[in-house]
Design a protein around this nucleic acid. Structure first.
Lengths: 129, 129
DNA sequence: CTGCACCTTCCCATCATGGGAAGGTCAAGC
DNA sequence: GCTTGACCTTCCCATGATGGGAAGGTGCAG
């Protein structure tokens, strides 16, 4: 299968597949005489794995580690769980930070009458001395 | 005041102050004979405004708009409120997306016994065919 | 006069992603 | 066989916000 098909089947763009290859996240595939990359089912399996990890918000470095853990038959589930939980904590922290900022700004905006007058508590807060 | 002092007083790094100047978010300040940037109290006021907007999660382009609204005495509070609420919606959306992903991964991780055995539902989910 | 803290500009890096150019390959249709 | 269009290749550049660091100038205190 060539890269376009792999991209369509995996949900990862051809651009990103090449990129992942260049940083060593994906192995260099066989090439046809034309130079075209030639992938097999195992490649699709791996790229799908990467896509699901990406959808769960893992960074490239974390994906690298997950792939390593995936390949390592002797690793314990505790290792995987620990990586996942650390990532969950990070995600939750970021979500909370965003929600906090959103809440603060919403409070400010709600105090703004939002009419034709220029006076506005949002601007007022921003320009506080 | 020179840039280091402005940075310390505003909480925005000197690096970023120069950057904001280069993209036109901050005006080009006066220069001393030495070439050093020379700032006054009005500059500090403006940089603080920018920092508060940044802390509220506004992007550079949104800050540009906020600065315009700040300077425009004839703009209505409705204009400001509308920009703020659009941003709040965006922040809330991103926070929710992160929280959702975190929740999904937490559920997976909680299903993992996390012991010495290799079997792991997290990996299992990632490698789903 | 030396040393140190500060300043200047310029280039490069991050992270994940895409755009686009210049050029090669392949299969289908005439 | 030749054209056309879809696909592929590599390479460079861009994003947004931020920082690192180099090479060199300035200013002040000892």
């Amino acid at each position: 299968m060539q890269i376009g098909e792999l991209a369509a089947a995996s949900g990862v763009s051809a651009k990103m597949i090449r990129h992942y290859e260049s940083i060593g996240l994906l192995p260099r595939p066989a090439r046809r005489d034309s130079g075209y990359r030639d992938y097999g089912p195992a490649d699709l399996h791996r790229v799908k794995f990467v896509r699901r990890a990406k959808d769960l918000g893992f960074s490239v470095e974390q994906m690298r580690e997950l792939l390593r853990l995936w390949a390592d038959r002797s690793r314990t589930s505790a290792e995987v769980k620990s990586l996942a939980l650390a990532h969950v904590a990070d995600l939750e922290h970021r979500a909370e930070a965003l929600a906090e900022v959103a809440g603060a700004l919403r409070t400010l905006a709600e105090a703004c009458h939002g009419d034709d007058r220029p006076d506005c508590p949002i601007i007022h807060e921003l320009e506080r001395r």
